[in-house]
Design a protein around this nucleic acid. Sequence first.
DNA 1: GCGACAACATTCTCAGTAGTATGTCACTGT
DNA 2: ACAGTGACATACTACTGAGAATGTTGTCGC
Lengths: 211, 211
Amino acid sequence: MMNTQPPQSLPPMTDSRQQIVEAAAQCFMLKGLEKATIDDIADVLGATKGRVYHHFRSKSSIYFAVHRQAMQYCFDAVDPVLALPIPHDEKLEAMAAAHARVMMDTLPYQRSIRLGVEIYLRGSTTEADREMLAELINQRNNYEELYREVLRGGIDTGTLSVPDVKIAGRVIMGALNSLVDWYRLRPQQTDADRDLIAKDLAQTVVRGMRA
Amino acid sequence: MMNTQPPQSLPPMTDSRQQIVEAAAQCFMLKGLEKATIDDIADVLGATKGRVYHHFRSKSSIYFAVHRQAMQYCFDAVDPVLALPIPHDEKLEAMAAAHARVMMDTLPYQRSIRLGVEIYLRGSTTEADREMLAELINQRNNYEELYREVLRGGIDTGTLSVPDVKIAGRVIMGALNSLVDWYRLRPQQTDADRDLIAKDLAQTVVRGMRA
DNA sequence: GCGACAACATTCTCAGTAGTATGTCACTGT
DNA sequence: ACAGTGACATACTACTGAGAATGTTGTCGC
């Protein structure tokens, strides 16, 4: 039997690695992918380049770790909603709200991934980079497919209706992901504030897709 | 009476300048803001750095010119729709469709501006940069305000209904602007193809805001 | 037919940055 | 107590790219 695991097993996410990824997400958000230097990331940790390069081969591999984590947050937030035994239209709205929440709750990660996909797509010089990138793009597609499946389910059962499932999926993702552009973290914001935004967003987006 | 014009008049948009801006938009789209070098831009024109720096003081000033042009395209596309004597809900959908069209038609410009706002916001070292940036952000806000005004008008006259005008505006912009992420130029695409996408998008987004 | 200027091209400098090489030190099993 | 190793810090290299300085060429007024 063939080994179905990915060829190069991922390095274990130790505590120190996780800290670096977290710091990197912060830096990427604040200064942009290119302008954020390895030294910046190390500074956030009160460390030096040596620590970073001890755990990561390259800057791009750090970005990929951030990206992977961001995707994981999304899946983790939406999976439980997906399992709920509710009509497709309600499920879609709940998924949208959950996605909106995770955008706000993990803003540095989500913002980082938005900055970089295309950039690393073009300039990927190494084979490892291209491989990583292909996997992440695939993951992202799988994630968006979750929404399209619910859309199709709703259309089949008569609770949803859109001119084009693919475009409807784009609309959902576009509207929700735009949060990373305009949502600003403020210290006095409460959990309820975020929930309100998430609910309003989800409702506004999904309402137009109801049958 | 005070002079209400901007303090430093913009350099005239000569043909050569326009070519540079066009080439820059291409490069920014293909390689990203930071990875695109002045030499890249010059290469597209079959020229050298000298030509570029003869017309622009800095790389950031080129980006600002691209940004300004992108905004102008948007205004030019939406202004005529705004003047139509039709109900607010129809007007909103027509504006959305026009915006979607301009996203596709001027893709390099629109994609460039998405990449850079935040990046140049942080690292703006010169006063001129900050000034330019503030003006462009202001312009962008004015543009989005056009949509919010139509939304409010529609709510007042009973043709539109949303939980929150601000968020509804974000949804519209987010969904439509996401075009720059997923829309791909293909040579065999016809005008009708783009119109179909624009119509589907506008309809899907605005339908949920109707009363 | 010549000075002057615009529109570039060529060449150079200098700062910043990814990545490397090597050093240090605490700990751990033996 | 000592060899080995993991987890870093320090010091260095190699390169890239923005911007400046300077050189070249066409053109236009006169």
